[in-house]
Simulated scan of single mutants.
Amino acid sequence: MADCVVSIAEFRAGNFRRVSFEVASEARKVADALNLPLYGIAVGCGVGEKAVELGYYGVDKVFVADDAALENYVPELYVPVVASLIEQWQPAAVFLPASVDGKDLSARLAARLQTGLAQDCIQVVCDGGVIKAKRPIFAGKCLAWCEWADGALPMISCRPNVMDCQAADATRQAQVEKVPVDLPEARSQALGVELDTTGKVELTEAEIIVSGGRGMKAAENFAILEQLAKELGAAVGASRAAVDAGWRPHSDQVGQTGKVVNPNLYIAVGISGAIQHLAGMGSSKYIVAVNKDPEAPIFTKADYGIVEDLFKFIPAFTEEVRKMKSTC
């Protein structure tokens, strides 16, 4: 008989990533459907001081593993710590982020706990006590519903910026319990982490993304996208073609071999719409395409299409956005 639902948070650079709250919100829905408490697991350095924040999103009790050696994600350290906690319970389901670290952690946990993992899910339902998860497959061309056999522990990683995140309720307090940390000797270590200090919006958490492709013609032309992004409060992305040409860093790449993003608004500028790129942004809520070629494949996916020279349209559009902001 299950005794809880588990939500695993991701802690980075002194704060929980927003996807941690999205995961907790989704796990809360399942816990309510099963009439079970929601346990949270928070691992990191200094995470104990922030653990109470998970309670704002529905977590009833947070188990904290706080140690200087856990400042950066190292699988050999994180996996045994998280697995040992889960093994103490009989959870009905385990939720965690489908971030870069989360995908690695979830796969290792599934192997260690000998259960099935539904990776990168975009929807979870609990019907009559049965948990089902929907995930894209074949580069997003199909959607598959996943169920678990009787007795198997459902493990679900949630795609960032897809699940509805409930409003934070600071009056809801989670019980926080620090657990002893008995770390094994690791054969690897994180020597350091290079953080982007430019203040740019993280692609996977951005509400609006403006992306440029081969049609931008040169690295310096991305300046017009930067200006538009600044007015919209958006992040700037790029297609693989633009990254391969050296116009943008790989961290900006959207696509199957880059980052999978799910903003409310995705503006594709000078991007033809190769399947590799569509796999990375196809689940965006609204897609706007700007391309001078009316036959570009991106238009088959776009909600709104503008057939125009991007070097004429984007500056004019940016100016209109600027005017609208000034009148608000």
Rank of each mutant, 00 (worst) to 15 (best):
N291R: 05
V176C: 12
I209G: 13
V52L: 02
L36K: 15
K178P: 06
M324R: 13
P37W: 05
H277N: 13
K301P: 00
A83K: 08
V179S: 04
Q88F: 00
I224W: 00
E22H: 00
N161D: 11
K259Q: 06
E185A: 15
V125Y: 07
N264M: 10
A118I: 12
A168F: 03
D182H: 15
F299L: 05
C328T: 12
V74I: 07
A149M: 15
G212C: 14
D252M: 08
Y286H: 13
M1S: 15
K323P: 02
A107E: 01
V243F: 00
P80H: 14
M216R: 14
L36T: 13
A174E: 04
M1Q: 11
S84E: 12
C4S: 12
N161A: 13
E202R: 15
N221Y: 00
D169I: 07
R12Q: 06
R248D: 04
P154G: 12
T257G: 00
E49M: 06
V290L: 07
A241S: 11
E231I: 04
A218T: 05
G280E: 09
K285G: 03
V130C: 08
A242M: 06
Q227N: 14
Q119N: 12
I306F: 11
I271D: 03
A245F: 09
A186I: 07
M281N: 08
T197W: 02
